[in-house]
Nucleic acid binder design. Sequence first.
DNA 1: CCGGGCTGTTTAGGAAAGTA
DNA 2: TACTTTCCTAAACAGCCCGG
Length: 361
Amino acid sequence: MKGNSDFKFVAGSQDNVYWFLRHLVASRYGNYARHEEAQLRRISDGLKGLLRDEAKIEDMCSVIEDGLMDPVPSRYGGDISKRYRQTEDLVERLLRRINNKSDVRDFILAINAVINTTALQNDVKKFCSDEVVSIIDETLDVGSCESLDPSLAYDALYNVDVGGEETQLSEQREALVKYIINLRGKLGKKYDFEEDEVIRIVTAISQEYERRAGQSRSSTAGNVLETGLQHLLERFGLESTGKTEHMGDLEIDNKIEGPEGSIGFSCKRSLRERFRQSLSRQSEIGVDQIWFVALMMADLSKEKIKQIGDDGGRIYVPRDSYVWELYGDQVELEEVLYPADRFLEDIASYTGMKLDREPPD
DNA sequence: CCGGGCTGTTTAGGAAAGTA
DNA sequence: TACTTTCCTAAACAGCCCGG
């Protein structure tokens, strides 16, 4: 523990690279790798010099501590800055693992790895609005059909979701595989590591990379659906705000205001506990109803559907889903549960707008 | 097995601070 | 004053875990 006690937990060094990576990225330590890449390079160069000169370990630790703290402003708004406190914690966690020269070498390896994998993450081709638009247009058969079919709207969103998942994951994996192949060669030749040491380092990097990559996939998935819904509405000439709105803890992804009614939309892959945020507050956001589009049936319990209905919302599910098969004809759910192929036409009739089925030139 | 309650990393966007 | 940068918070979930 940090503090005055004499007890010190002595960590094993075999997972050094993993922990160094983890700490350099952790948000509780200020996400140092994202904010101070250039400084990490300087620290790494400095340490390499000290290793060559056979400097004392204490001097290397000072270089690490001073180097990490140096670019971080200590005060903010008359108080100690949050980043400064986070960086102090980072230094403490790193230094307790650095006791000899091979720990320093591991730290240098971790700095290189974190800089390289951050670059990989940034360079990976994102599944962006161009791809969303083309998958939706292909599903609707825009270009070859004489009249757009609104019943394909849900299929289009579903295809976007599946395509996004596939694309993003395989791009991220491809980048990692290339990097690891290259690194593995270097670790064997340049550093003379044993095979099991190489594997410990390579898996540390992979494990940490996936932790970050997975989080970012989750982030972009929501955006992809929002983009998809907006494009669908545009294709069928339904004018919408196209932007998410926050009213305190309440969020909707899109909004349509027609002459006869207004709808707030909430697109979700799955419907977890947060959907309640959007409900029973329609008036605050200035819409008559909130409609949900959920792609995954997995956690759509009857209780949840009822709750959406009690708050005057609707949810659209595909006709060939088990949810529709079981609940589709239940009188108590008829005001809340609707088949997905009616989604766009229901929007038009509820808001008093007209669907434009004309394919673009 | 389920659902509630929580993780961590990401992004967006607002407030505060810095600069021309 | 107007613009830019920095700091910080909120919210999302191609998530996670565990008690009843």
